[in-house]
Amino acid sequence: MSTPPDEALRTRISELEARVGRLEEEGERAERREDSERTPPDPGPEQTGHTPAETAESETAAIGPASPDPARQADDDDPYWVLAGLEDRYPDDDVVLYGGTMSTDGGGYRWQYGLPTQTVLDGDFADAAPALSALAHPVRLALLQAVLTGTHATADLAALPGLGTSGQVYHHLNQLSSAGWLRSPRRGRWEVPGERTIPLLALVMAATT
C-alpha cells in the first residue's frame, strides 16, 4: 500500500528537522572545542546588561545593571505604592505600566515601560497575535524558561526531558526567534533579548496569577 502524500510529506519534514538538529548539535560541539582552546573575551555591553533601550511615550524604558536603592523601597503601609507613584507623576492621565528587575551573572536588567491607557485601547490588539502565538505552546515556554535560567546551548536544550526530538526543539527555537523572544548571538547558542526579559516574565506572571 502506498503512503498518502500528506503523511509522506510530514515524515520527510520530520526527517529533515531531525537532520538539522543533529547538524546543529555537531556544530555546537565543534564550537565548544574551539572555545576551550582560546581565552574568552571581556564581556561587552550586551553581556553586562548596560545596553540602552527605547523610550516610551509616558515612561522611560531602560536596561541597566540591577542594584538595590534603599530610597526606593516600598512603603509597607501602602499596598498600592506603585499606583500611588504613578498617580503622582500622571495625576490627570490613565496609564498602563509594567516593570521589574532581574539579576544575572553578567549584571542584570532594570526595565519599565508605560503608555497612556487610551493609546493602548486605540491600537489594534490583533497586532499582538504573532508574538503571543509564538508563546502559546508548552514546549516553547519551557525552552524560554530554560534559557532564562542558564541553559543556552542548542544541544543542552535538546537534551532536556519531555521536549521532543532535537529537530522539534530546533523548530520551536526558530519560531521563538522569528517572534523576537529569542536570539542567537552565535551558532548553537540562544538568549532572551534584554529588552524582552522583563516583558516575558510579566506576561507569564499575568497569565498565571
Rank of each mutant, 00 (worst) to 15 (best):
H50R: 13
D127E: 15
T101W: 09
V96M: 10
T149N: 14
L132A: 13
Q118C: 01
G85K: 06
A134W: 01
A153E: 08
F125I: 08
I63P: 00
R38K: 12
L144C: 11
A126D: 13
A131E: 11
D69C: 04
V95R: 13
L148R: 14
V95N: 03
E87N: 14
G114D: 05
G99D: 05
A128P: 00
P40Y: 00
R110D: 05
W81S: 12
G107E: 06
A61K: 06
P138Y: 02
M102Q: 15
A128D: 11
L163S: 07
A159Y: 09
V120Q: 06
D88C: 05
S103R: 14
L143C: 03
A153W: 12
S67K: 11
D124R: 10
P43M: 09
V120Y: 03
A74V: 01
G64A: 09
P70M: 05
A84V: 05
T60H: 09
S133P: 00
V120N: 06
L144R: 11
P41M: 08
V139N: 07
L121Y: 12
S133Q: 11
P91Y: 11
D105H: 06
E46Y: 10
L148C: 04
A159L: 07
V96C: 13
L135Q: 03
V96K: 01
L86H: 08
P161T: 02
E87M: 13
L163Y: 08
A146H: 09
T117V: 02
R89S: 12
G108H: 03
D92S: 11
P45F: 02
D69P: 02
R72F: 08
A136C: 03
H137P: 00
T51E: 11
G108P: 01
E87L: 15
R72K: 14
V95I: 14
